[in-house]
């Protein structure tokens, strides 16, 4: 057993936590693993290659209840936890955040300051494929862009996997399910598919941590991850970083907002 598995066994045996959310090796790829028994701890691995952002499970009341749990977190999870905390969705006393360094040593991040420091030090390099696609679309004119998104989003089957995979899509009732009034047509059609993505991106603006889980979850491999990505970059450029929540909901006299001038 490696250090991670040993630590997990201890935590579960001692009853410190009821559940550890981590990763295991699946048939073809790494997948999320919910470890509840000490004897299962040896299945736990640590990897950056899991397409799921496991922070998505932290807002699932039916899964974690009022129990104390641990999460084995990579950059993606930690960035999401920080944002979730700003949005009052984390009960810190019920959550233990563990990371594993390259030597296999397990570290617990006990405060949000530590998590923020971790994120600063471990920011992954931008994905060249995503960057290239954004650049390509930026160069298109309005008509080309409209045609591009129409053809891409026409394929969408409205399975809402993007919504399910996103740690920050935690509403009890999504706007897509509101029917008084019916903001979005619930069926698959090009226009309402586009409307849904616009809605998703607007709701993510100023919040998205750029983990890319939405794009990886899409069964049709639609480039929806670049929508949130581009929106985050634009917002950062235009409004700067927000304090205590969402840059769009807070005001500071030193905000950039150069586009208004």
């Amino acid at each position: 057993m490696n250090k991670l598995q040993e630590r997990a066994t201890d935590l579960l045996k001692g009853g410190t936590v009821k559940l550890i959310i981590g990763f295991e090796q699946g048939n073809n790829k790494i997948r999320p693993f919910f470890c509840e028994k000490p004897e299962d701890a040896e299945k736990l691995i640590y990897s950056d290659d899991c397409s799921t952002n496991n922070a998505v499970y932290l807002t699932k009341k039916e899964l974690i209840g009022d129990n104390k749990i641990a999460i084995i977190a990579t950059y993606k999870e930690i960035a999401s936890i920080i944002q979730l905390n700003k949005e009052n969705q984390i009960k810190k006393e019920n959550l233990m955040v563990l990371t594993v360094d390259k030597d296999g040593d397990v570290t617990e991040l006990t405060s949000f300051e530590e998590m923020e420091k971790f994120c600063e030090e471990n920011t992954p390099a931008p994905d060249p494929v995503v960057a290239a696609l954004i650049e390509k679309i930026d160069k298109m004119n309005r008509e080309e862009r409209w045609a591009y998104w129409k053809s891409e989003l026409d394929k969408c089957i409205r399975c809402y996997a993007c919504r399910a995979a996103c740690p920050l899509c935690y509403c009890n009732r999504c706007i897509s399910e509101v029917n008084c009034p019916q903001w979005l047509d619930p069926w698959k059609s090009t226009l309402s598919n586009i409307e849904w993505q616009i809605n998703r991106v607007m709701h993510m603006s100023g919040r998205c941590t750029g983990c890319g889980a939405c794009a990886k979850a899409c069964p049709l491999d639609l480039p929806i991850g670049i929508l949130t990505k581009k929106m985050s970059t634009d917002i950062k450029e235009m409004l700067g970083e927000g304090e205590g929540g969402n840059v769009l909901s807070t005001f500071n006299p030193n905000d950039k907002e150069n586009f208004i001038h």
């Binding site: 969705q89 509403c171 009890n172 205590g244 929540g245 969402n246 909901s249």
Partner: peptide
């Protein structure tokens, strides 16, 4: 068990 569709993100509080 929902009581309200509000999820308590309190972004409204900041705005």
């Amino acid at each position: 068990p929902l009581f309200s569709t509000c999820v308590g993100c309190f972004m409204c509080e900041t705005i």
